[in-house]
Amino acid sequence: MADQTLIVIPAFQEAERLGDVLAQIRRTVPDLPLLVIDDGSRDATAHIARAAGVAVVSHPFNLGYGAAIQTGYRYALRGGYRAVIQMDADGQHDPESLARIRARLAEGYDLVLGSRFLEAGSYRPPLARRLGMALFRSCAAVFVAVPISDVTTGYQGLSRRLMASYDREGAFPHDYPDANMLVRAARAGFRLTEVAVRMRSNPTGGSLHVGLKPLLYVFKMLFAIAVEGARPRRRREP
């Protein structure tokens, strides 16, 4: 198990699509172990994952997306995994792009971000979301030297030492760890890069950001980026 890459899939009420998503990933990368974090779902999400022969960690109640991937990092750290690639459970992230992220992790990068904007043919979010992303990108660019086109991507790979750093430092956001965590990793001196990935639109049209949430999300994320920028700089351990 050690010295391997683990695929972490946070899932909440995804019983409808999870089976297909897991089957697709299995077909594409049969050698990589999978972990589903069931974030307190009340449907058959955990059951479906377990039936597919995948390791499952079930939160006793809904803790949020950020907490789910943090649980995945802890599982990977304790299991001795070398790296983690996180993917959404709704099928938006095309498993065909896994190999690119994996290759960059093997080159020694600590954070490999999958960008939907580097390649034609990938899903493009609506204009309002693209404007929001541009705003976050501009703010994050103040702290991140490497140009990043997709700062809110959830399709990313992390090295063990980056996960250990997040775990050691605490204050990991339980809701949306996006551009703010990118800023934290860059300021700590971790190696960042970006690769082109294919993303599909959400089949149900659903999103984490519905109703008035997008407005609050924009304020929270701008605040979180500013706060990360103001934190005392902690260098990564070699």
Binding site: A55, V56, V57, S58, H59, P60, F61, L63, A67, Q70, T71, R74, Y75, R78, H174
Partner: peptide
């Protein structure tokens, strides 16, 4: 939340 995560990891 930390406690809930630990319980989940322990159960797993």
């Amino acid at each position: 939340k930390r406690l809930a995560q630990e319980v989940a990891l322990l159960n797993a």
